[in-house]
């Protein structure tokens, strides 16, 4: 742990700045749980059981509005459908990992863990595993703590600070750092353009359409590169 280059230290050092913009999100979730009328402890247990902020917010809000359980669960799972793509993108790297980690890893596979760990998929398998677990458990602990705090202080923090904008900024940074050949930048641009055009579609389905358009675009651009 005293080696500054160790993957565990790097993991915690990378995870903390990336977590900061999730704090207002945790507070909003706390506020939503309180306003939904759901028992606060039960609402908070979704941080442990679901562990997916946007999905938890969707579920809690819809249940609070009196939606049917099936409808609320379906909507929450559609919001989470992007995780299928993370799972596909990570599958080749996880082939080199022990079985216990293939079962535990997906539980921790949130947006930020995916983004940070995609930059490390060519690392030595053991280093990758330590880094992934470091980022994953740091985020997991901080999320459990901040969403619990959110139950109490969510109702009193000003939202006009626009701290939520830090999330797209950090994700852009992760995207830029992950582009090691120009067709990947092309794929990202096509995906972003498609999501922009499809912005008004229901359930944020532009996200899925954008990603589905970006992958073939990247494959075609790779052919030009060769």
């Amino acid at each position: 742990m005293n080696n500054p280059r160790s993957p565990a230290v790097a993991a915690v050092r990378d995870a903390i700045p990336i977590f900061i913009p999730a704090i207002p999100f945790a507070l909003v979730l706390g506020l939503a749980i309180v306003e939904s009328g759901i028992d606060p402890l039960l609402g908070w247990s979704s941080s442990l059981i679901v562990y997916a902020g946007a999905s938890q917010l969707t579920l809690v809000t819809l249940l609070g509005e009196g939606a049917a359980v099936a409808a609320a669960v379906t909507a929450a799972l559609i919001v989470n459908a992007r995780h299928l793509m993370y799972s596909a993108a990570m599958a080749p790297t996880f082939q080199q990992q022990p079985a216990w980690f293939r079962w535990l890893g997906p539980y921790l596979l949130i947006d930020q863990v995916f983004a940070l760990c995609m930059l490390r998929i060519n690392d030595d398998p053991r280093d990758f595993r330590i880094y992934y677990l470091g980022v994953g458990t740091t985020f997991w602990l901080l999320w459990l703590i901040t969403t619990a705090f959110g139950l109490f202080i969510g109702p009193v923090v000003p939202l006009e600070w626009g701290l939520g904008f830090a999330i797209p900024i950090l994700f852009l940074g992760v995207l830029v750092m992950g582009v090691d050949r120009w067709p990947k930048a092309g794929a990202a641009l096509v995906a972003a353009g498609t999501a922009y055009v499809a912005a008004d579609m229901p359930s944020k389905s532009g996200l899925l359409l954008g990603a589905l358009a970006g992958v073939p675009a990247g494959v075609i651009l790779d052919k030009f590169r060769q």
Binding site: R82, F114, L175, G210, G214, V215, G218
Partner: peptide
């Protein structure tokens, strides 16, 4: 090779969606 583009594509679309 196609899976290489999943990460950048999801991030590009996710930034706009946010």
């Amino acid at each position: 090779r196609a899976l290489d583009h999943v990460g950048p594509s999801v991030l590009g679309a996710l930034i706009v969606t946010m």
